[in-house]
Every structure is written in C-alpha cells, then in structure tokens.
Write a protein that binds this DNA or RNA. Structure first.
Length: 576
DNA sequence: GCCGTTTTCGGCCCGACTGTTTTCAGTCG
C-alpha cells in the first residue's frame, strides 16, 4: 500500500512550501496527505482501475495532485520534493521535531548559521550562536536545547495505556479545587487514540488563576513550557506534555468540542457552521455576534443540525454525514460486556489462580470468565499439554460446582489459547480441543513470514472446526513490533464463511485488532470479541481499552459476542 | 493546489502564548 508513503512525501512538500512562505498550497497538500493516511483503498489500485479520474475522486485531490500521485506510482518519487531537496540541503523533517522550531525559524537558522540537521543545531546552540541572531534570544536557544534533549529521551507518542491513567489522576486532583466547575479530558486522549502525543485537559471556571498555579506545581510535572491566564503547558516526568485550558462555563461545551478534535473533524464542523451563516469557535456558536450555543457539546451539534457525535468517532471518517442522516452507530459500551474469554491462570505461569481470577470477575459483575492458558508449544510460557488441559477441565468443573452452591451467577468457561504452528496446524490434538468449551488460536512464532504464507497459515487455522476465536490477529506490539503481513481481506472473508471470531485484544501494548481493522471487520459482517489477555487479575480492568478501540471502529453491541449472556455466547461459537 | 446553487476568481478554521517585534511574527494545537 503506497498511501502512507505518498502521504509522507506530501507532508514534506508542505513543510518546504511553508518554509518558502508559500501560502495555502501547503494546506492543500496536508489535506490530501491526511486523507491518504486514512483511506481504506490502495491508491495504486484506484489508479489501476480508474486512472487519473479515479484519483481525483479522493477528497482534496485535483488535477495537480492526481498527477503527483501518478508520478510516484510510476517513478517512486515526486519531482516537486526532489527539487526542494536539491535547492536546500536542510533535513527539515528532522528539525521540525524540535519543539519551538517551525519552518520559518529553520530557514533563518540555515541562512545565518548553515544549520542543516540536528547535529548542527545542537552544536550552534551550545556555542550560543543562536541567541545572537535577530528574532532569537537566550530563551529560544534554551528551548531548542531542551527540545533536542526530549527527542533523545522519548520518541514522540506514548501509548494510551500509559497516558490515560496519569491524566485521570490529574483530573481527580484538579476536580477537588473549589474553583473548578467542570472538567474533562480532551484531545486525542478523549477520542481514545491508541497513541497520545500530549494530554489535553479542559476546565470550566470563573477564576482560573489558582487552578493554573496548582496545575504547574503538580507532582508529576517536570518542566513548565508555558503559563498564561487561561492556558498552561507542562512536561510530565513520564515523558509527555500535558496542556490545561480554562474557559468560562458558558463556553465549556464549545471549548470541549473544539479541543477534543480531531482537527479534521473541527474543520468539517466549522464548515457546516459557515454554510449556515454561523461562526464556530471554542467560545461558542455565533449568529452574527450573538451566541446561540456553547454551554454543552450536544447544544453545539444540535444547533448545527447534527446529532451528538461520540468523541471516538470524531476523525472525519464519515461521522458527520452519518450524523446528518441519522445513521450514527449506537456504540458498544464497557457496561455491555458480560465476560472475558482470554485470561491466563497460574497453570501456565500467570500470576493468579483460576479461583482468584474468578473472584475478580465476580466483583466486576461478569456473567462468565474464560480461562484460556497457553499450550505446550510455548514452553517459555509453561504451555499446557493435552493431559494438563484435561486435568484443568476437572478443576474448573469443581469450581463451577462451588460457585453454584454459593449461588454465584458467574460461570467459568474452559478454553485454551493454542498455538498456530508454521503450517497452520495447532499444537493440541483435536480430540482434546473438542472437549473444551471454546478454543482460541493465536500466532506466537515465525511472525516474519511472507504475506502469502502467513495468510494461508492463519486461514488454515480458521478452517479448523474447533477454532472459535483468533487472538491478537495481526500480532503487532505497539511501538515495538510491526504487524504480521496478512491479506486482511482474505482473512475477513474466511472468518465470515467459517464463523470464526476475531479478537480485539485490550492489552494496551497490543490493541489488536486496531480501530482501522475493526471497522473493516464490521463492514464485512465479521463478529468480534473484546478480551483482555489478562495474566493477572488486575488486568481484567484493561477491558476498557479494547472497548475504546471497538468504539473507534464504529462497532455496536451486536457486533461483539461477549455482550451476550452465556448461553447465547456459546451458541455463537463453532464449538458444539 | 483545490473548490464552487452567492464565485471559474478569490477565498482557504481560528485563537493563545512566547519572545523580543515596541506592535507582531512564529509556533502550536
């Protein structure tokens, strides 16, 4: 898929143009780059099918950019970018990562000091050459040096699982201040993107000063980037930035809408406002200069003729049209989840016993808990063999009897997470798999196979009548391991035909399937299950992350089988 | 560079904060 490559080039061209002071064109490139990034179809395929005309059907693509895409498809490069690079040897994408540097300043740094890359930048800053320049100063030089340090220590975005709990802690502390009338997460965190650049928090108050003062002195704060009357930005010790913004209560809804984004969603909603002769900003929705909405987000959307759009959908991925036409999905909720089928016990080296896991599940109000320990191929995880699985079955029957006597509604289901071998066979004999309540199969080894081999391997496993669920289908580890090469269209087709359920793995380091694949799976009518892959009882709480991904994938309750009561759930499995 | 039932030309979302500019440009979101 060339989409991402072309998007990257368009972003680079836009940056060079900004550096040259070219107006408006950069936005045109950026818009198309964003659209390409989120496009489900391969531009190469579009071009093959419908040529330049097909390309021009992509929003924002006109004649010029269609030809640029064609040029890349044919030659693997785009002359516009090559020319920019020839004209200036600046490593623009590298330098733009430095906080406080933009295209204009980078241009000055190159012209006056010959700075081309991070190394030059650091050298000149340490020699105090930058502070001497017109338009720069001591502060600017310090900020550059700190920006370089940050780039060395942290590599940009952190996972949702790290940032969300910290941001929630900060919110709970701020909420205690008497000046705070309302408070909410905003930005990508509220939209629950899988990785977070910085955490945004919005507060409604008439008296911001004490809030700002308190915020910049919070425990987790390492450095204060900026602090004004209504806005402050700090660096957290955990390696990400947190922004706090305070607005008046009458603007809280419009500010929340604005700061939740995404940027593309905001541009789209503002356009709708403009079409209706209104003006939408973070301060409210205005008709001439009179506010007609702003207190609540619902009020803003409704005044624009839209029904409320859940934050997870606000990516300009069709949610505005769906809202206009009353076609928004009724998203699955955490409280819809009735149980968790991917949990490990101390039988395979997990931390807690089946009984302890069950106790936690009871506390969570679950109707069922599935124990699915690793199987024998995974020696490093103490994988169970056939004999151990049968012994485990007896133990679970015993525990279920005890639960019944205690009048507990929880039922423990017995499964396993068996290993899909290189040839697509499983590491546990079918006659034992048949005796379990359900079977999960997962890829855990030889993850670098070719696309064709990997796809065939997974398809063979899905065709096994004992395999109900495929765990973490793409095997990616966020920020650590690329997803396996798979022909996802084929996988979806076979999943639907065989009734195999795909897992949405809630572990924050996996989030696999991700939102993009989830939406495709739903579109193909493939059923999914949201599991935690818990290796200790506390991890049962990670369910919300998987639910968030599912919501970002436009998924409704009926698409997820563990929203069903236990008898219905079992009926939806291949296992009989 | 794109787009259009107000336009094929003239617009393109909009505001806060910083630093060094004595009135605002650049950056960020």
């Amino acid at each position: 898929m060339k989409n991402q490559e072309i998007a990257k080039i368009f972003f680079q061209i836009a940056d060079f143009m900004k550096m040259e002071g070219i107006a408006f064109k950069p936005q045109a490139y950026i818009k198309v780059a964003l659209n390409l990034e989120s496009l489900n179809e391969d531009v190469g395929e579009i071009y093959k099918k419908d040529g330049l005309n097909g390309l021009q059907k992509i929003p924002g693509v006109g004649k010029g950019l269609a030809e640029a895409i064609e040029e890349y498809l044919k030659k693997g490069k785009i002359k516009t970018l090559e020319d920019f690079k020839k004209k200036s040897p600046i490593k623009l994408d590298q330098l733009l990562n430095v906080e406080s540097l933009g295209p204009k300043k980078i241009k000055v740094l190159y012209e006056k000091l010959g700075i081309k890359n991070l190394k030059d930048l650091e050298k000149q800053a340490k020699k105090h050459k930058i502070a001497e320049l017109d338009g720069f100063g001591e502060k600017a030089e310090q900020n550059i040096l700190q920006g370089i340090e940050f780039l060395k220590t942290a590599s940009g975005r952190l996972s949702l699982g790290i940032v969300l709990p910290i941001a929630r802690e900060v919110i709970e502390k701020l909420r205690l201040l008497p000046e705070v009338k309302q408070i909410s997460l905003a930005g990508s965190l509220r939209r629950r993107k899988e990785t977070i650049g910085d955490a945004d928090i919005l507060v409604a108050s008439d008296n911001p000063k004490p809030i700002m003062d308190y915020f910049i002195k919070l425990d987790g704060v390492e450095k204060v980037w900026a602090k004004g009357d209504t806005k402050a930005s700090v660096r957290m010790k955990m390696g990400f930035d947190m922004d706090l913004r305070v607005v008046k209560e009458e603007s809280f809804g419009s500010a929340l809408q604005y700061f939740t984004g995404s940027k593309e969603h905001n541009i789209a909603t503002r356009k709708i406002a403009i079409e209706q002769g209104l003006k939408l900003s973070e301060y409210g929705l205005f008709k001439r200069d009179k506010p007609i909405a702003g207190k609540t987000e619902e009020g803003i959307y409704n005044a624009l003729g839209l029904s409320f759009i859940e934050p997870e959908l606000r990516e300009d991925g069709g949610e505005i049209d769906a809202s206009l036409n009353g076609k928004l999905p009724k998203l699955v909720k955490l409280t819809d989840i009735k149980g968790d089928l991917h949990c490990h016990s101390n039988w395979d080296g997990g931390e807690d016993s089946i009984e302890e896991m069950a106790e936690s599940a009871i506390k969570m109000g679950y109707e069922y808990l599935g124990i699915s320990d690793h199987t024998k191929f995974l020696k490093i995880e103490n994988g169970l063999d056939e004999k151990q699985l049968l012994a485990q079955k007896l133990e679970i029957e015993k525990l279920n009897n005890l639960l019944k006597i205690k009048n507990c509604k929880l039922k423990i289901l017995h499964g396993c997470e068996c290993n899909i071998m290189n040839d697509g066979s499983l590491d546990i004999k079918d006659e034992v798999l048949e005796k379990l309540d359900y079977v999960i199969a997962g890829l855990h080894s030889s993850l670098k196979m070719s696309k064709k081999e990997m796809t065939e391997r997974l398809i063979k496993a899905m065709k096994n009548p004992n395999v109900d669920i495929i765990s973490h289908p793409t095997t990616r580890l966020l920020g650590k391991r690329e997803e396996a090469q798979l022909d996802f269209d084929k996988i979806l087709k076979v999943a639907r035909e065989t009734g195999t359920i795909l897992e949405v793995n809630s572990s924050p380091e996996r989030l696999d399937l991700n939102d993009f694949y989830i939406r495709r799976a739903k579109a193909e009518g493939v059923k999914m299950i949201i599991n935690t892959d818990s290796h200790q009882k506390e991890q049962l709480n990670l369910m919300e992350y998987g639910v968030s991904m599912a919501r970002r994938g436009w998924v409704e309750k009926q698409d997820i089988i563990n929203t069903l009561p236990v008898e219905e759930l079992l009926k939806n499995l291949k296992h009989k």
